[in-house]
Design a protein around this nucleic acid. Structure first.
Lengths: 208, 208
DNA sequence: TCAGGTTGAGAACGATCATTCTCCATCGAT
DNA sequence: ATCGATGGAGAATGATCGTTCTCAACCTGA
């Protein structure tokens, strides 16, 4: 027990900032997996504890209430989700192709193991009328996604930019419930049709 | 207290079939209102009791468990919801106009007081991974709505019939979260655009 | 070695919920 | 009027949950 030099290797008993950050991530990983898989209300804090391996006391030091954990989880997931989408879509240079790439990304997501629809829509159904903080997180995410989609749609000269967003939302929700990734293809086809309803640019002015 | 003739007016103590049917409706009315408003899990059976005025014993005689009540509520709502949609849409004779009328009906629904998105999508988010019976009810409703929409879309010669369904789903979900009925207009506009992508009928058959 | 402080592990607490049970008033039939 | 059965009102039950608390173990610094 006292074989190794204690003074050099031991962390000071108080938890370091680095440890705190690591625990936070572990906790958010655990919460995201379980909450998305089974719903927030269906997962108890004791299960978060055993799945994360973190003592309840530390969990509640990092998040004062379960609601805070759920909100922080949705918030981090939002940033990651949109970053992943942007990383896939932004490199495509042609505006029309870029817009269509959104639906290729969705198609990939829909077949990912454990896909169970939109985490924010699910959270809305579960907690939208109970937790104002969760509702705000859902609204914020949807607004951000909406703004991103319509920006790409306008860049591609789609007259009905809003429709592209609605097609994406419809595809996500439908693929979630049916478990079938086909809605991504159907939505993509419809966007392609909408692209054709706008006059093709006389001289593609993608260059400024 | 004994002023009126008792023998003629009194119901036999055992509950009649008619009374059972009435109570069932009262219960489903109450459950639908409260479950839609606040979520299934957020409403306790005691609140169902006080809101319906029915004794707990009778509630459990009509529905052996809360889950059964939730499922029966979704089932009745499905039949009513689709009947209301059909009653609005079917009388429109021109297939293209009929398809567009779906989104007028949605627009009306979105501004109805207490509108809070799709009851089935909300139930999916809350109980989709917990209750197989609820999940089945959600799948059944979405399949029925899908089949109805795509039938109308094909009758209107929309090449991407699936897209019309996805636009409707996207509009419902978005209007629910944002509280803004605009998605109905946006989806309608997009469907009108998709209608134009199909060859117009040789003789515009709007007149019957 | 001792004192002071912090942590881990999980028991305890208080609330809530779905479901069942108790108790009594009331009914029809005799 | 009495009997047997039924129903109403809500208390009791047993389980679960979010959150807090206990307490022993262990650390650092003196």
């Amino acid at each position: 027990m006292h074989i190794l030099n204690v003074k050099e290797l031991r962390m000071p008993a108080p938890i370091t900032a680095e440890q705190t950050r690591r625990d936070r991530e572990i906790l958010l990983d655990t919460a995201e997996r379980l909450f998305y898989e089974r719903g927030v209300q269906a997962v108890g804090m004791n299960e978060i504890r055993s799945a994360s391996g973190l003592p309840l006391k530390r969990i509640y030091r990092l998040f004062a209430a379960k609601e805070d954990l759920a909100v922080a989880m949705l918030n981090r997931r939002d940033r990651r989700w949109r970053a992943s989408l942007a990383a896939y879509v932004e490199p495509v240079t042609d505006p029309a192709e870029r817009l269509l790439a959104v639906f290729d990304w969705l198609a990939d997501w829909f077949v990912a193991p454990g896909f169970r629809g939109c985490a924010w829509i699910n959270a809305y159904g579960e907690l939208g009328s109970t937790s104002k903080a969760v509702l705000t997180e859902v609204e914020t995410h949807k607004q951000a996604f909406h703004d991103q989609i319509t920006a790409w749609a306008r860049a591609a000269d789609v007259p009905a930019a809003e429709a592209v967003f609605l097609l994406a939302e419809g595809a996500i929700v439908t693929a979630g419930i049916t478990g079938d990734p086909a809605p991504a293809r159907h939505a993509r086809t419809a966007v392609a049709a909408l692209l054709r309803t706008s006059p093709p640019r006389t001289a593609p002015s993608t260059a400024s």
